[in-house]
Amino acid sequence: MRPLPLPHAGCALFFDFDGTLADLAPTPDSVRVADGLPDLLARLAAPLAGAVAIVSGRPIGELDAHLQPLRLPAAGVHGAERRGADGQWRRLAVPDLAPALAVLQVLCERQPALRLERKPGALALHYRQAPQLEDECLTAMGVAMGRVEGMALQRGKMVVELKPRHAGKGHAVRAFLGERPFRHRRPWFFGDDVTDESAFEAVLALGGVAVKVGDGDTLAPHRLADPAALHGWLRAAVAALAP
């Protein structure tokens, strides 16, 4: 892995949330944000003219709640919903997910250690509390996907998700880069999971910087050990960008 440099004023920075900016937790609801992180991100965005965004599998509303009072440009549900720096929202059209939901609810009633998360336009099945049920979750998700049109499976760390086929973090990053203040900037992406690999691919194709947070195989040429290491890099970046 290459040493990770510090950014310059012509960069655009994109961050995953869970496992990247915040440590993973047993459930999505139990994630805790480190003290001072929202202020640190705000101080980072200022010298970059606001070219800092969160690109996550979480809904944007949850990201805002964790980072309040900060409201950054954000892509949620792997890009199925996106809020630009201008405050405008863009959402992909999705089918009625009720037939897929019914399949997954039957499994969760039989296996109460599983957690079914309903998102805007997506369904996520978490098995962190029961990793031995991974194959059963994948089978059920395959059946659920067959009940609706235009959806695809997205795997992550102890989770499998049904999301819009055309949603992806790489697509979200490219959409941001077509808008102010991200346009004509060198993109950087920080992520920890297989869901972030499409964003790594996108920024590398554009001559940008990809940073893997944590362990695992990756396209990213750079790596940080954990969210705490990323927070240290953020503080160094703020100092480097200070006028």
Rank of each mutant, 00 (worst) to 15 (best):
R2P: 00
P7I: 09
G10M: 06
A12V: 13
L13I: 15
F14L: 08
F15E: 12
F17T: 03
G19I: 13
T20W: 08
P28K: 03
V31F: 07
V31Q: 06
V31S: 09
R32A: 15
R32S: 15
V33F: 08
V33T: 15
A34F: 01
G36Y: 11
L37C: 13
P38K: 03
L41C: 05
L44D: 11
A45W: 13
L48A: 11
A53V: 06
V55T: 10
V55F: 09
R58T: 05
P59R: 11
L63S: 02
A65N: 02
P69Y: 11
G76N: 10
E81H: 08
R83P: 03
R83G: 02
D86Q: 05
D86K: 07
Q88H: 12
R91V: 12
V94A: 03
D96E: 13
L97F: 08
A98G: 05
P99N: 01
A102W: 04
Q105P: 06
R110E: 15
Q111I: 14
A113W: 01
R118F: 00
P131H: 06
D135S: 14
L138S: 03
M141D: 09
M141E: 08
M141R: 04
M145H: 07
R147W: 02
E149H: 05
M151D: 02
Q154S: 13
R155E: 11
G156M: 11
V159W: 07
V160P: 02
L162R: 01
A167T: 01
A167Y: 01
K169M: 12
H171N: 13
A172I: 09
F182L: 14
F182Q: 13
R183M: 06
R183C: 06
R185V: 01
W188V: 04
F189L: 05
G191D: 08
D193A: 12
A199Q: 05
F200P: 05
E201L: 12
E201I: 03
L204A: 09
G207M: 11
G208C: 13
V211N: 06
V213A: 00
T218P: 02
A220R: 06
H222G: 02
R223L: 02
A225G: 09
A225F: 04
D226C: 14
D226K: 01
G232D: 15
W233L: 03
L234K: 03
L241Y: 02
